[in-house]
Computed example of a mutant assay.
Amino acid sequence: MMPSPSRPAFLAAGAALVTVVLWASAFVSIRSAGEVYSPGALALGRLLAGSVALGALCLIRREGWPPRAAWPGIVVSGVLWFGVYMVVLNWGEQQVDAGTAALVVNIGPILIALLGARLLGDPMPPRLLAGMAVSFAGAVTVGLSMSGGGSSSALGVLLCLLAAVAYAGGVVAQKPALARAGALQVTTFGCLVGAVLCLPFAGQLVSEAADAPLPATLNMVYLGLFPTALAFTTWAYALARTTAGRMGATTYAVPALVVLMSWLALGEVPGPLTLAGGALCLAGVAVSRSRGRAARVVAASPRPEPARERSGGSAGSA
């Protein structure tokens, strides 16, 4: 009986790994593009690049439109996560130091677990809660150690808090949609909804792109193709096969990976406190992802099966 459930569990874990690695790489790219592009223009450019890539893939795979029952979750997650979250987070990180941003934004996974338990009936086992507590402490430690004595503003704190709430709401709204449509469909149309929401920033994007250096624009395109188009699809694939709270806890690996990538790509050697915080993040993720029994890992996997039949199998190879 073990071979059949082990494959989807392995694929879901691999998809989650791809997601956190690409989301971590986004911080390095945002550092470059964010110096040239304003928050709204950067979000719109990123979403347009992602929408083009995802739309082309949907056409190649002949995905078609999602079922009507999936649209409420797609629209809500598109507005909150692809639209509001990206703009507000870009803006908030210009107003606060990294320590404050880490503290406020990283309440997102905690909110996901609470909302998932309340609205989706997701379980909250002690290991998940313990792992999230350890990872949250690690994320705050990493942020404080890399803050460099920056300043914070009340507006910046409020924006980061709004970003965390939008992130949590988007994830919880996306989960039911994945029971009715494939991961590629949910991601593509959610990205399109976010792009439409950001269209008021089109004028800024055009004017800023005309004067932007090529590396900044390439970083914006990279953000759309990989941390958005690819990583959000692999996220949706993995989310369809586990609980929202457990997937939210997985993103606590991002700060540790950002430390490592900054070290390798930018030559920013982390200090002992930063390394300790990164280790705490990874330890907390390991605790929160463990369930003790292999059967429990696949407990949520049957839910996406109907979606494969309705969506032409997109959930199986996102």
Rank of each mutant, 00 (worst) to 15 (best):
E93F: 02
W23A: 10
L162Y: 00
L17A: 04
L48Y: 03
C281V: 13
V20H: 09
W91E: 11
R68M: 06
R241V: 04
S151I: 06
A163T: 01
L144P: 11
L129Q: 04
F27W: 14
P126I: 14
L161V: 00
A177Q: 13
G131Q: 15
M124P: 01
S38T: 14
P213L: 01
A318K: 08
E268F: 09
A183S: 15
L11R: 14
T100M: 13
L178W: 11
L239Q: 15
E305Y: 13
M1A: 10
S6A: 15
G64S: 05
L223Q: 13
G149S: 13
P123T: 02
V258Q: 00
A299C: 08
T234Q: 05
R118F: 13
L260Y: 09
I60H: 12
W81R: 02
A279C: 05
A244Y: 02
A139P: 10
L17T: 04
G277E: 05
Y85N: 07
V259G: 04
P306H: 02
A286N: 09
L192K: 02
I74T: 01
G108K: 03
F201W: 14
A238S: 15
I60F: 12
A16Q: 11
P39C: 07
A15R: 02
P125T: 14
E35N: 06
A307D: 04
G83Q: 13
G99P: 10
C58N: 04
C198W: 10
S145H: 09
V165R: 03
S207G: 06
A256E: 00
P255S: 09
S135D: 07
L266Q: 12
L264A: 09
R296Y: 12
S314G: 15
R289I: 08
P109A: 08
G169A: 06
V287Q: 05
W91S: 08
W65V: 00
E35A: 11
V165C: 07
L158Q: 04
A229Y: 03
Y237A: 11
G149V: 13
W71P: 02
T234N: 04
L42C: 03
S317C: 07
F189M: 14
V84N: 03
